[in-house]
Write a protein that binds this DNA or RNA. Structure first.
Lengths: 356, 356
DNA sequence: GCCTGAAAGTAACGCGAGTTACTAAGCTTA
DNA sequence: TAAGCTTAGTAACTCGCGTTACTTTCAGGC
C-alpha cells in the first residue's frame, strides 16, 4: 500500500505546461523515473507498481511531452525538410503527399520550404539557399529536394550538411542519391498496350525533345516497337508545346498527313494535356475514340484523364510513390547507410480507361 | 586594433553543432552578449565594436541558431499546425499553399498533419484527435483546420487549447472563427456576367442542393436575376452528381426540354467538372460555345477550365487567399486578439476565359 | 574627493526533457 | 555473517539558448 496521496488538488491540470516534474511529484517519484517509463527503457528497472502509478499521473494531469525539449536533449528532431518549387507550381503535389504520408506514419514531421527556382541554377538561387538554411535551423535530420518536372538540378551547398535525397530530379554534380520516374519503361508499356490492341501504325505526339521525359519515353517507344519487329517512322512523330493547343496542332499534322486509309490508328501523346487537344482534333474529323483512333496519354492528370470523354487511358507518373520512397531512402541514410549517387527508377504504371 | 586572434584554426567549423558558446569564445565575450546581439536587443548596451566582432565570429564559425532550443527558452515556437484531409484529397491543395506562403513570409513554419475524416464526426475522429495531439506536442502556437469541401465540422476538443481558425469549413458548435468562400456573391457575379452578355434564359446545373456551396450559389443566382427583374424558373434547373457525367446528363435534360427556339442561351454549371460534361452535351447537339450557348463554371479547376476548348469562364474558389487569411487571422489571435466565432467571407472572383 | 549615473558586460538561473553514474535496500551464497 | 549481486530508484549533468539581476568601469557634477 504505497499510496502516497499527493497534496495537489486533482483535476487542476494547469492550463499550460504540465511538465515531467509535475507528473513526478504527482506520482511521488523522481523525474528520472518518469522519463524511463515514458521512453520504455528496458535497461532501467522500475517496478510494475510505480509504472502504473506514473501512467495514472500522466493521465490525471493530461501531461503532453514537449517534442522540442525532447529533441534538444536527445539530439534528434524526427523532422525532415522538403524544399521544392511544387508549393509554387503544384503539378506534382502528390510528391508532397507521398512524402508527408510516409513521414507521418513513421512518426516524423515534414517541414515544407518553398523554392521558386525555375531553372537549374536560376535567378532565385538565393531564396533557395535561404530555404535550406531555415530548415537546417530547425535541425531537420534530412532533406528532400523535389522538382515539378523531371530534370537535372544543382543543390545548394548547405544541403550537403545532412543526408539529402532528390525526388523527380537528379544531381547534376553526381553526388546525391535521387529518385526519378522510369520514363523509358513508361513509353514501352504504352506502346506495348497499343500493339496488343492490334495497332501497328502509331502516331507519337512528342514533347520538347531535349527534356529527360521526352528522351526516355521516346526511347521506350522505340524499344517496344523493336520488340515487335517494327521501327519508329519519323513521319509519325510531331512535337508541340506541352499544352492542349500544342497537342491539337500536332495531332492535326499527323492526321492530315495521310489519306484516310493510311491514317495511323492510334496516337501516343507524351502528356495528357496534349492528349486533350488531340481528342478535339480527332473528334473534329468525325472520328471516334477509340473506334477509329485509340489514344494513350502520359502523366495521369486526374482532372483531365478521368474526365475526358471517353476517359483517357494513360501512363501515370508515380509522384506519390516517389515521395514516399524519398522519405524511406532518407530514413535509411539518417540511420547510417552510406550516401551514394544511386539513382532509383520508379515504375510508371499504365492506367486503363476507355480510350484504347 | 582589437583583433584578438583566437587559437582555433579558422575554417574548421565542426561538422555538427557550433553553438553560441563557441561564438562567444571565438569573439572573446560572454554568451549573453552574443545572445543580445543576435536578437537585436536595443535595451542591452553592446558597443558597436564588439557587435562587429561577434558578427564576424558568427560568420567565421558558420554558426546557425538552433530553433528548437530557442523555442524552448523563449516559450514561443513560431510554428503553426494545419490539420486537414487535403493531404489525402488534394482538391483544395491551394489552401495549404496559401497558408504555407503566408506563414513562410512571416518567418513561421507550418506543420502539416493529415486527417482522414470524410464526414463531420466520421469514423476516423480518433485519427484526427491524434493529429491534433501530435501538433500540440510540437507546441504549435495555433491551429488551422481545413477542409476540401465547404461544410460544417466538429473540431477535436484539444484544438481549443490553442487559437484555432477553420478554413473552408465552419464550426458546427459555433465557437471558433472561420474563413469560407462567399458562395452567394460567386453565384451572383456569374449570372450577372451572363445577363450583361445579353442572356436572359439561363439554365442552371445544380449540385446536391443540401450542401452549403449549392445553397449559397443558387441564392446568388436568384439575387442576380431579381436585380434584373427576373425570376429563376425551376424548369431551368437540373441537379446531378458532381461529375462530368452528371453534368452531361443534367445538360441534356435542360437542353432537350425545349425546342431549339426556346432553348436557354446560357448554362451556369455549379462546378467545372459538370461544365466539362455540359460541353460535350452541347457539342453533341451541334451547338457552338459560346456562339449558341454560353457556359460558365465554378471552382476554377485549372486543369479543366484552362484546357477545355474553348477555355471555360468560371468563378474561382479563393483557396489560396483563404489559406493566407487563415494564417493572418491566426497571427492576430496568437498576438492576443480575442477569439470570436467570427466568420470571414472571401470573395470568389470571376475568371473570364472564352466560353461566354 | 566623493557620489551618481550611464555604458558595457557578465554570472547564473530556467525552459523541459534525456542520460550517466551512483546509492540504498533486499536477497543469495559461501 | 560478511561479501556480492539484484532490484528500484535518484542526483546531477547536459542540450542550446533567453533573460534577469548584478558587477565593473568611467565620465561628470557638485
Amino acid at each position: 500500500m504505497a499510496k502516497t496521496t499527493s497534496p495537489d488538488k486533482p483535476g487542476t491540470a494547469r492550463q499550460r505546461g504540465v511538465t515531467m516534474n509535475d507528473v513526478a511529484r504527482h506520482a511521488g517519484v523522481s523525474r528520472t523515473a518518469v522519463s524511463f517509463v515514458l521512453n520504455n527503457r528496458e535497461d532501467a528497472s522500475i517496478s510494475e507498481e510505480t509504472r502504473v502509478r506514473i501512467a495514472e499521473a500522466v493521465q490525471a494531469l493530461g501531461y503532453r511531452p514537449n517534442a522540442g525539449a525532447r529533441a534538444l536533449a536527445s539530439q534528434r528532431s524526427d523532422w525532415y525538410g522538403i524544399v521544392t518549387e511544387i508549393v509554387t507550381a503544384p503539378f506534382a503535389v502528390d510528391i508532397i503527399k507521398g512524402a508527408q504520408d510516409q513521414a507521418w506514419s513513421d512518426g516524423r514531421f515534414l517541414l515544407i520550404a518553398p523554392s521558386d527556382q525555375g531553372d537549374a541554377a536560376g535567378p532565385n538561387q538565393g531564396m533557395e539557399d535561404a530555404a535550406v538554411e531555415k530548415l537546417l535551423e530547425q535541425r531537420v535530420e534530412g532533406l528532400l529536394y523535389a522538382a515539378t518536372h523531371h530534370r537535372g538540378v544543382h543543390v545548394p551547398r548547405s544541403a550537403h550538411e545532412v543526408p539529402t535525397v532528390l525526388v523527380n530530379c537528379f544531381d547534376l554534380d553526381g553526388k546525391l542519391p535521387s529518385i526519378v520516374p522510369d520514363e523509358r519503361a513508361g513509353g514501352r508499356v504504352a506502346v506495348k498496350r497499343l500493339l496488343t490492341a492490334g495497332h501497328t501504325k502509331i502516331g507519337v505526339i512528342n514533347l520538347d525533345p531535349r527534356i529527360p521525359a521526352a528522351v526516355g519515353r521516346l526511347q521506350g517507344v522505340r524499344e517496344a516497337l523493336a520488340d515487335a519487329g517494327l521501327e519508329l517512322d519519323p513521319e509519325l512523330v510531331a512535337a508541340g508545346y506541352a499544352t492542349a493547343d500544342g497537342g491539337y496542332d500536332a495531332a492535326c499534322q499527323i492526321l492530315d498527313r495521310y489519306p484516310a486509309k493510311d491514317r495511323p490508328t492510334a496516337l501516343f501523346c507524351l502528356n495528357d494535356r496534349m492528349a486533350m487537344g488531340a481528342y478535339d482534333a480527332i473528334k473534329e474529323r468525325g472520328l471516334a475514340i477509340p473506334g477509329d483512333i485509340a489514344v494513350i496519354g502520359f502523366d495521369n492528370q486526374e482532372l483531365i484523364a478521368a474526365y475526358l470523354r471517353p476517359k483517357l487511358t494513360t501512363v501515370a507518373l508515380p509522384f506519390e510513390k516517389m515521395g514516399a520512397l524519398g522519405v524511406q531512402t532518407l530514413a535509411a541514410l539518417t540511420a547510417g547507410q552510406p550516401i551514394t549517387a544511386n539513382q532509383q527508377l520508379v515504375d510508371c504504371p499504365l492506367l486503363e480507361r476507355s480510350s484504347v
